[in-house]
């Protein structure tokens, strides 16, 4: 029944750092955990709501965590349509040199310049040159629903 294995002190404090792409034992494994873009989360939540019993009050009926996540996703989802979400994902997949987490962060934070991207996602430094990154960023910006 105990589905949360106890964590050692060291695991809690030292092994995680998104700046160095350290995500602890569970989330480092790409076959187990897959980072999602906000626009993809929106699709998942929408589907869940559609399956729910009472459509009108669904978000609240599914509990506070679900409601807060829904509110958050609606507010920060830059790509409103499923088609745009697919296009963003396809564009990101062309950069296989980037970590899945970095790709998700690029689409979620939508930095305007390569310098900004490398400041908010420090692990990008040395992985991708500024020109390629700028092209990627402007392609992503072009997909944003205006």
């Amino acid at each position: 029944m105990d589905w949360i294995p106890p964590l050692s002190e060291a695991q809690v404090n030292t092994e995680e750092n998104a700046e160095q792409l350290q995500f602890g034992p569970v989330f480092s494994d790409a076959s187990v955990a897959e980072p999602l873009l906000i626009c993809e989360v929106a699709q998942v939540l929408k589907q869940k709501r559609a399956e729910g019993p009472a459509e009108a009050t669904a978000a609240a009926a599914l509990g506070p965590v679900f409601a807060q996540a829904t509110e958050y996703v609606e507010r920060f989802d830059a790509f409103k349509t499923p088609e745009a979400a697919k296009a963003v994902r396809a564009r990101l997949e062309r950069h296989s040199e980037l970590h899945a987490f970095e790709r998700a962060q690029l689409a979620n934070l939508l930095p305007e310049t390569a310098a900004e991207a490398k400041t908010v996602i420090p692990s990008l430094k040395g992985k991708i040159d500024d020109d390629a990154l700028n092209v990627l960023l402007s392609d992503l910006a072009a997909l944003v629903e205006s």
Partner: peptide, 16 residues
């Protein structure tokens, strides 16, 4: 599990 929080897995929003 839906709506629960754990230190290891974070907020479990939905079983997909």
């Amino acid at each position: 599990v839906e709506g629960t929080t754990s230190g290891q897995y974070g907020y479990i929003i939905s079983v997909v």
